[in-house]
């Protein structure tokens, strides 16, 4: 155990501190730029995992069940999130947009949930981390800004207003699943304390 093990540097402004875990529910914040450094929560591992499982299940439903439906003069059309992502599949450059939308709103959020489970499950059972657990956790963290489910939900609200004077709009089951999913992801993000997870990974490997 070297001296450096006990220290923590703010990733935003490089201020150096001696790391001391705050009490559960408290936060350690950088004194200079106010970035949250450590924020432990009670039973965080279990809760984060439970929420990750919920994300995967809800996303499976939210992707394929009808999301919204429109009705104009007897003609109607129901659309799933999957359809929305494939809306640009006309063979040209728009395909790229399709892949992008599907990735940002479905694949990346699911991948992050799966990676988190892969990393945390062995830790919560007191086992050694699985192979490449560190890389998996790093990838999950790097993908964080690219997970855009909550932005999609605002997009839905805007689309509803645009369509409402054109046609009658109905909500499908997936709409509510997606709304729940967004709340859960936000909650999960707040539960996850990166510093504790990295430290646990370090200790489990010794």
């Amino acid at each position: 155990m070297t001296n450096e093990d006990a220290m923590i540097a703010c990733p935003q402004c490089d201020a150096l501190y001696t790391a001391r875990a705050p009490d559960l529910g408290e936060k350690a914040v950088c004194a200079r730029c106010h970035t949250v450094l450590i924020a432990p929560r009670r039973n965080a591992l279990l809760r984060v995992m439970a929420l990750a499982v919920t994300v995967v299940i809800l996303m499976a439903g939210a992707t394929f069940f009808p999301f919204l439906s429109v009705n104009v003069a007897g003609l109607s059309n129901a659309s799933s999130v999957f359809d929305a992502a494939l809306a640009f599949m006309d063979g040209g450059a728009m395909m790229l947009l399709s892949v992008l939308v599907l990735g940002l709103i479905v694949l990346i959020p699911v991948l992050r949930a799966v990676l988190v489970l892969y990393v945390l499950l062995p830790l919560s059972l007191g086992r050694k981390p699985l192979r490449h657990a560190r890389g998996a956790f790093r990838l999950s963290e790097e993908l964080r800004p690219w997970s855009m489910a909550e932005i999609f939900v605002i997009g839905v609200a805007v689309a509803l207003v645009k369509v409402s004077d054109l046609a009658q709009v109905g909500y499908g089951p997936a709409f509510w699943m997606f709304a729940a999913l967004v709340l859960i992801s936000v909650f999960q993000d707040g539960m996850m304390d990166r510093w504790t997870i990295w430290k646990t990974l370090d200790e489990a490997d010794r």
Partner: peptide, 29 residues
Amino acid sequence: MIDVFVVAILSALVQLDVAAAINPGPAAI
């Protein structure tokens, strides 16, 4: 990204044969 998602939702949803259809334009990409 909101506007891109709005375009995606609208073009998937509003595909009603002759009555109405919404399609993405080049600006979306």
